[in-house]
Design a protein around this nucleic acid. Structure first.
Length: 393
DNA sequence: AAGGGATTCAACCGCAGAATT
DNA sequence: TAATTCTGCGGTTGAATCCCT
């Protein structure tokens, strides 16, 4: 079992990333892909370890990141998925396009946990707190009573730890239990959750969408999400809508439920893509696939100029991040999109098309405007607080 | 306005497992 | 087959920010 050799190297920067570092990393990866992460910092001229670069890219610089507060639907989905998956944040994140595992983990720990407790739900077991507490106190009493040799009370079927290799049947049963309860309860289950409407249970596949829907969400018997975000390539993309075929299009969010203007691209994690030179192993690979564009699935690197940004946004400066800059440029005109496509095709032409200089020079200005735009709306945090307040009444 | 506690979130740490040598 | 390298994941930390008094 090895360890990151870079971790032992000296002179490596730690802590927050500067805009200059972001620029270097973003520039490097958009031009060359990340390849072997351990070689990225050297090639990009960064005094960081590869691990840090990878994290920065995944959690911050990736163009497909969706920023901003989580919607009610997203939170419900996270709760439902957590009931099934436990703390498998990466798998939960796979069902929420544009969200990172880190982001979801933070949301869970900072917000959702509390909300569930306020509703009297144990965030670990997803059972009523009273039941959990009663059982825990009983277990404590049993354990203190060493004379007792009776059959121990079965565990509460907690979500197994992420690293557990054990069977996950209990979580499936837990889900089915709640899902059945929900069906009998006119939508919301006894705990007040809304069920995942697209999930059903099949003896063959486990949990998944109705058989007439995209099966990419099928939950395997061993609790692994099957197929999601694994391989996105031209051959996998259907020319027709989802059916029982192996569509790779995400099925997690209903098309009509997506936020207006929200576009995304799926990052292929397969290493099968031989065209991605230098990219080995798993990780983001820049997809060079015309069908993706033709289908309008995503618009990657839809960079608009600062003028265009100004056109779309108003307000005073605050922080925004690369992904926000990039995401909010979705409204970019076709000419800019074409440039993006060129990048996607690996035909990046320095300076003549998008350059990081362009991006970063406008980015920091743009940050401020984007944030102002968010603030000009009723801020999501405020909505959440109001919602929470109403729930407590 | 100041200060102190609470909250948020970016980043680090350490481990596990896959891939490579 | 064992050792090493690398990636990915989840838990944790701590700085920044928010909010209340």
């Amino acid at each position: 079992m090895g360890r990151h050799s870079c971790c032992y190297k000296q002179k490596l920067r730690k802590g927050l990333w500067s805009p200059e570092e972001d620029e270097k990393l973003f520039n490097h990866i958009t031009k060359y892909g990340h390849g072997c992460w351990s070689s990225v910092p050297k090639q990009a001229g960064l005094q960081r370890c590869g691990k840090s670069c990878r994290l920065r890219w995944i959690n911050y610089l990736r163009p497909d990141l969706k920023r901003g507060t989580f919607s009610e639907q997203e939170e419900n989905l996270i709760i439902e998925l957590h009931a099934v998956l436990g703390n498998r944040w990466s798998q939960i994140a796979a069902q929420l396009p544009g969200r990172t595992d880190n982001e979801i983990k933070n949301l869970w720990n900072s917000s959702i946990k509390k909300k569930l407790r306020q509703r009297g739900i144990d965030p670990v077991t997803h059972k009523p707190l009273s039941e959990t507490e009663a059982r825990e106190s009983k277990l404590l009493a049993d354990s203190s009573d060493t004379a007792s040799v009776s059959e121990p009370t079965p565990p509460l079927m907690p979500i197994e730890s992420p690293r557990s290799k054990n069977s996950v049947t209990p979580t499936k049963e837990l889900f089915l239990d709640r899902y059945t309860a929900a069906a009998n309860n006119g939508g919301a289950d006894s705990l007040g959750y809304l069920p995942l409407p697209q999930l059903t249970y099949s003896p063959e596949y486990g949990l998944g969408p109705p058989t007439n829907q995209n099966p990419s969400l099928w939950f395997s018997q061993n609790s692994r999400l099957v197929g999601m975000n694994q391989e996105l390539n031209s051959t996998a993309l259907p020319s027709t809508g989802p059916s029982t075929s192996t569509s790779k299009l995400p099925a997690h969010l209903p098309s009509d439920g997506s936020p207006a203007g929200f576009h995304y691209w799926e990052a292929g994690k397969s290493s099968n893509n031989s065209t991605s030179s230098g990219n080995s192993g798993s990780g983001i690979e820049l997809q060079s696939d015309t069908s993706l564009f033709d289908g309008g699935i995503f618009q990657w690197m839809d960079l608009c100029s600062y003028k265009e940004a100004q056109f779309h946004l108003q307000g005073e400066p605050e922080d925004l991040k690369w992904s926000e800059f990039l995401n909010s440029s979705i409204q970019a005109p076709a000419t800019v999109q074409n440039q993006s496509q060129a990048i996607m095709y690996g035909e990046i032409k320095e300076e003549s098309q998008f350059t990081v200089d362009d991006g970063l020079s406008t980015w920091h200005n743009y940050q401020r405007r984007q944030h102002q735009l968010q603030d000009s709306d009723v801020h999501g945090k405020d909505i959440h607080k109001l919602t929470a307040a109403f729930e407590q009444v």
